[in-house]
Design a protein around this nucleic acid. Structure first.
Lengths: 107, 107
DNA sequence: CCTTTTTATCGTATTTTTACGATATACGAT
DNA sequence: ATCGTATATCGTAAAAATACGATAAAAAGG
């Protein structure tokens, strides 16, 4: 992917500190219905097991695992290993900075 | 792309009326640094000529045209033909509904 | 130790995205 | 009519995303 600017400048003027590449990465991570569903679900549950997410979606377990990885790479969620399971939850700091970025872009 | 649910349900509970597929499409459209730059630029200019956007980005004219098409398909911008030129501007309604969707997802 | 459960990763096929140059189109000006 | 300017589209190559089944890994329970 081409980097629009060689230096990862701040994406926005305000207090949030997401550069434009990170901001776009988060948008991209939210750019698939299944991943939006996952975020919605985690928001309502305040953390839940991977298998629970797999049940919720009409997708193979390996595919869901891939989507979770994508969300994790973007920083939107984190996974805490708990025995044989992984408990996923939202990364609220990142989510809040992202929301601020969207605000600056849209309001 | 798999549709997570056969019926395009509302993505969110509130007053915005974006279904989850449209919401994800907008996120995806914002999922590239060049397209975020375009939106930022249009926001600061309140409408501008395509060639202006091309100058701003280190990309070929045809590539920029493709990015503009992507943003237009997502509903984020609209292009008004003006003689040999096209003047692009933000679609503020869509942007506002999108912002509300992000709020519901993140706040 | 063996089995089961849970999740991640590998390998792979298909589709989509991203980028470019070349070309077509549409309009204004000469 | 012809030329130049501005933009969109076509063709195409390379990379990334998406999906699946199969397999690996890690922990708990018997």
């Amino acid at each position: 992917m081409i980097q629009v600017s060689p230096h990862p400048e701040k994406a926005f003027s305000g207090s949030n500190n997401l550069n434009i590449v990170d901001f776009a990465r988060i948008c991209k991570a939210l750019g698939h219905p299944a991943r939006v569903r996952i975020i919605q679900h985690l928001r309502s549950m305040d953390g839940c097991i991977c298998g629970n997410i797999v049940e919720m979606l009409p997708l193979a377990q390996s595919t869901v695992s891939q989507h979770l990885k994508c969300l994790k790479n973007a920083g939107l969620i984190q996974g805490n290993v708990d025995g044989p399971r992984t408990c996923y939850c939202l990364n609220k700091d990142v989510l809040e900075r992202f929301r601020q970025g969207i605000d600056e872009l849209t309001v």
